[in-house]
């Protein structure tokens, strides 16, 4: 925390860059080997590729059916975010503004349930979902994400709404606005900062989630990116040229998301974890 850039700082800088390079090494290996032929991967793992081979990517892209699985991941993530934001903000608003015992009980139930690990729910859930026939459906999965994400989402909204003054709403009600209108026209726009945080946290979670979709979506046509990667890896074990290209393709959407939203993501994670 020196105030000037001294030779000591430059030593720290070199050290920090070295640590950074260590962090990047796995990316280097995956990326450089994904552009090599299979024979070259085996003989020349650490070196840069001699010739760039993009065939791996074309092959992996086709075999993953990437456009389809990307579309599935996108639909699931967007739809889950929409229902989570709409229903949890509404619920949190009502729970804050209704000063009754029942509101407290419901809120505490949502918060307390956050400690239940998924493994303690999954067996009856999947069996019941099978009996109800909502397995193998993207909308069934979205419904489950609404439930699993509700604890944290309501918790974050609840904390934020408590800080919004009542006067605005009172004025609107006197002007003849309904409760529903008050919420959507006045309160919801004020929730934007926390909504951004919530959408980022939920998107990263849902986009990367593997276990729940693997249990719910058994039809290959419904697979998400993590699911497709998993089955691809199982099918092409040791075919590193294809497998590595598939990994890179799977990571790219996340990196694009990160670099366009970097500031929000870092802020979101900081505020999401401290609360």
């Amino acid at each position: 925390m020196g105030s000037r850039y001294t030779w000591k700082t430059s030593i720290v800088e070199i050290l920090a860059i070295l640590v950074g390079l260590v962090f990047l090494v796995p990316f280097y290996y995956v990326l450089s080997n994904s552009l090599k032929s299979f024979a070259e991967i085996l003989t020349n793992t650490s070196a840069l590729p001699k010739v760039l081979i993009f065939d791996n990517y074309v092959n992996a892209f086709e075999k993953l059916d990437f456009l389809l699985v990307f579309k599935n991941s996108l639909i699931i993530t967007i739809a889950s975010n929409i229902v989570l934001v709409i229903f949890c903000s509404m619920a949190a608003y009502m729970l804050v503004r209704t000063k009754k015992k029942i509101s407290n009980i419901i809120f505490m139930t949502f918060v307390a349930a956050m400690i239940i690990p998924f493994q303690s729910i999954m067996i009856p859930l999947i069996k019941t979902a099978g009996n109800l026939g909502i397995l193998n459906s993207i909308w069934g999965l979205v419904f489950m994400y609404l439930a699993f994400g509700s604890g944290m989402t309501i918790f974050l909204y609840h904390g934020f709404i408590k800080g919004i003054p009542l006067e605005l709403e009172e004025a609107a009600i006197i002007d003849g606005c309904s409760r529903f209108g008050v919420f959507w026209r006045i309160v919801f726009p004020l929730l934007k900062p926390i909504t951004v945080t919530i959408v980022i946290l939920n998107s990263l979670w849902i986009w990367n989630d593997f276990l729940l979709p693997s249990l719910v979506l058994q039809d290959p046509e419904l697979r998400t990116i993590p699911l497709a990667t998993f089955f691809f890896f199982g099918q092409y074990t040791k075919q590193w040229d294809l497998a590595l290209a598939a990994l890179v393709i799977g990571i790219i959407p996340l990196l694009i998301f990160f670099f366009t939203m970097q500031k929000h993501i870092i802020q979101g994670i900081t505020s999401g974890s401290i609360k």
Binding site: F87, A91, A113, P124, L146
Partner: peptide
Amino acid sequence: TLFVGPVLLAFTLVVLIPFFTG
């Protein structure tokens, strides 16, 4: 009910009931 109901319903069906039957 309108505001809290939908998410409470999903939560009860997907989290609470399976947890207790479990």
